[in-house]
Design a protein around this nucleic acid. Structure first.
Length: 713
DNA sequence: ACCACGATGCTTTTT
DNA sequence: GCATCGTGGT
């Protein structure tokens, strides 16, 4: 039952004055600018608890949105500790989950049936590729992935196909992007499926077109709370603004300095303009940092101060009696392998000094960096976990198993059908599939239904018939069997499990294990539908490292986490800041990279080790690089450059510390430059790899040319 | 239809 | 350097 005010007072008494304000200012729009390590989660949960304990609203009248399932879960757990049963019924979840919830209920108004499927990015890409090929696009020249990006960006901005202006549709694929957006949506609708973007876009459309439904939700949500507000995109912002309209109690918590997802459509303006959009908004700054030492905080603050366009915050150490702690170490190495080796040595030292393995992390800029660390960690026998690489549900065998289950739920799920119809081999090749596709298209039926109608040779016909019988039998059994038993039956009878058991490749046993692990996971679910929905909405941070192991992950994945000791390798120009970020977004890109560096540094409670390597193998080719400009931006008084003047590789302290003084020696990127070639004529540089340039010529061809044969114009 | 081999392109980040 | 994809042979 509801807790009394007395109970919640215990929690309130633990808050500092700003946090207290943020919790108890319940009415009206509120922006809480919450710096790294200032107790953001505590504020959010206490705020919900406070609203409940004060009986300002019933649980289901509170909407709390987060970005990851992990954050939602954490909030749920803490909330339950705080107010117990009273927390149940709160609308607490990720944007996407809440989108699903709304669409399961009212999807009919935007052309969906109750049991719509959520496609993952792999499905999306395949679907789009099929469409593009069908309409004669050279998918080599125009990668479906890029097309998907274009479409996704429209969706991020809340644009349904009819709202995309003509001017915007002209940049990619000879102006046909919009056509494909339309076709893609049509196809999704035919399949009764949605993609990630639709989970926001369709509720938005629903609300725009149905005032009564919108009014119902507006009425319902007395209080709205948003976590990580700096990462919201335009569609999410529009949704929030609509929902908050009636009661106007919206509390957004975020940190503009930690906005690192603009490439995925997040719009920092949402947070920067909060005051303009909600004129009566109050703004509260949380600046007392409970996490890091003064040196770490000093270094991070100085770094981020190089950014323009911030709302501005000054973090300070909450506990004044705490000593300054260790300096931030900056160390240069000869190459990536040495960097990995030395980092692992330091990890071993730390371990002996008593730091727990689970309190250390290696945070990298790009996924490929993990490889070298993995090698050395194995050699050293240190248990580790790479977070982010392959998510469980992204593995081939898991996706196949899910496709089987999806097909049982809905035999008309064409994507699932295509995926597994010939896995294991059932003698269904391209010719047979082609004929099924044609039949399906002509009769407006699914591939599964097309089995009966299509004219097939006897062998494939027989094979498909028995496959169909199996699927229908599973469908029948699914009514009585538990999800686990159904999955086992499907995996066994389909021969899928046997396929991997008989496979002699080295990874096969692991796949069998993963399938068995899938059975375990399934045990927690009451229905397959539930499980599929869960699996399709899983996110990066969701797999938590619980045991005593070191985590290796990208900086992006590390947001929201904290460790005693953090290793930040690869601080080199080109890698960090990443060349592509600079090429694609210029100064804005650079600032986002800097925020990423800030996020990395502020993960550390006690020790931060930054490193860079002068040489690194990229795409199998050796490349040399300079230390990141971010290193230069760290104030001397907070860093320790030890070792850089006695590296023994000929690179002196001055050489590696100061090379930016010789910035003119850095080869400038030739990307985007207009060039001329004797035979091919005028062109523009698309990419470069050392001296090898990829040039798009005006006559239409894309070629790889060695730089010396080109002249810049 | 299936397999083996060679060419290709890729590596920023992911809800 | 590696994985994926497309080609051509069986």
């Amino acid at each position: 039952m509801f807790q009394t005010m007395a109970d919640i007072i215990d929690f309130l008494s633990e808050l500092n004055p700003e946090q207290y304000q943020a919790v108890t200012t319940t009415e009206g729009p509120l922006l809480v600018l919450s710096g790294a390590g200032t107790g953001k989660t505590r504020v959010l949960t206490t705020r919900v608890g406070y609203i409940l304990a004060q009986h300002l609203a019933l649980p289901w009248q509170i909407l709390a949105v987060t970005f990851t399932n992990k954050a939602a879960k954490e909030m749920g757990v803490r909330l339950e500790q705080m107010v117990g049963q009273a927390a149940l019924g709160t609308w607490l979840g990720t944007f996407h989950k809440i989108g699903v919830k709304i669409l399961r209920r009212y999807g009919g108004y935007v052309g969906l049936q109750q049991n719509f499927a959520v496609l993952d990015s792999d499905d999306q890409e395949r679907l789009l590729k099929n469409l593009m090929q069908q309409y004669g696009v050279d998918v080599k020249k125009y990668p479906p992935k890029m097309m998907l990006d274009v479409i996704q960006h429209w969706k991020d901005r809340g644009l349904t196909p009819d709202k995309v202006t003509h001017a915007e549709s002209n940049d990619f694929c000879e102006g046909r992007s919009l056509d494909f957006y339309k076709l893609y949506q049509q196809k999704l609708s035919e399949m009764n499926a949605v993609d990630f973007g639709d989970l926001l876009l369709l509720p938005l459309k629903l609300f725009q077109e149905n005032a009564t439904i919108l009014a119902e939700y507006q009425e319902q949500f007395h209080y709205i709370l948003v976590d990580e507000y700096q990462d919201t995109n335009v569609a999410q912002y529009m949704l929030l603004r609509m929902l908050a309209k009636k009661h106007n109690n919206i509390c957004c918590v975020g940190d503009d300095d930690q906005s690192i997802y603009s490439w995925r459509g997040a719009d920092v303006d949402n947070i920067l303009n909060f005051g303009k959009i909600f004129p009566s908004a109050k703004i509260i700054r949380l600046e007392r940092n409970y996490r890091s030492t003064a040196h770490i905080l000093g270094a991070a603050s100085a770094l981020i101060a190089n950014n323009t366009g911030r709302l501005g915050k000054t973090l300070y150490v909450a506990d004044e009696t705490k000593d300054m702690g260790s300096l931030v170490c900056v160390q240069g190495y000869w190459n990536g392998a040495q960097e990995a080796e030395k980092v692992v040595e330091q990890i071993e030292d730390d371990l002996h000094r008593g730091t727990k393995l689970s309190q250390m992390a290696i945070l990298v800029r790009a996924g490929f960096q993990t490889r070298e660390f993995e090698d050395k960690l194995i050699q050293a026998g240190i248990p580790y976990k790479i977070i982010g690489g392959f998510k469980f549900y992204e593995r081939e065998e898991i996706r196949d198993a899910l496709a089987y289950l999806r097909l049982v739920l809905n035999p008309n799920d064409d994507l699932a059908f295509i995926r597994i119809v010939n896995k294991p081999r059932r003698g269904i090749g391209e010719v047979v599939m082609q004929s099924l596709q044609v039949t399906a298209q002509q009769n407006h039926i699914s591939l599964f239904e097309a089995i009966d109608k299509a004219e097939l040779k006897t062998a494939p016909k027989k094979s498909l018939d028995s496959f169909k019988t199996l699927v229908l039998a599973w469908q029948e059994h699914s009514k009585n069997l538990s999800p686990v038993d159904l999955a086992k039956e499907v995996m066994d009878q389909s021969g899928y499990m046997m396929m991997w058991r008989l496979d002699k490749s080295p990874e096969a046993p692991g796949r069998v294990e993963n399938l068995q692990e899938l059975y375990n996971v399934l045990g927690d679910f009451e229905s397959i539908e539930q499980f599929i929905e869960y699996a399709s909405l899983l996110t990066e941070n969701d797999e938590v490292a619980t045991s005593e192991q070191l985590v290796v992950m990208t900086l992006h994945a590390s947001k929201g986490l904290e460790f005693d000791t953090v290793f930040l390798p690869g601080w080199e120009e080109g890698l960090f800041p990443h060349q592509r970020a600079l090429d694609e977004a210029g100064d804005l890109g650079l600032e986002e990279e800097r925020r990423l560096a800030y996020v990395g540094l502020t993960r550390a409670k006690k020790n931060a080790h930054i490193s860079y390597a002068s040489n690194r193998r990229v795409y199998g080719q050796w490349q040399n690089s300079l230390p990141s400009r971010f290193i230069k931006e760290l104030p001397e008084e907070h860093i320790d450059m030890r070792g850089n003047n006695r590296m023994g590789y000929g690179a002196s302290f001055a050489d590696v510390r100061m090379p930016w003084a010789r910035e003119n020696l850095v080869p400038k990127s030739r990307k985007g430059k207009q060039v001329m070639h004797e035979t091919f004529g005028k062109g523009v540089v698309l990419r470069e790899n050392g001296q090898m340039l990829e040039v798009a010529f005006e006559n239409g061809g894309i070629r790889k040319i060695v730089a010396q044969y080109l002249t810049e114009i």
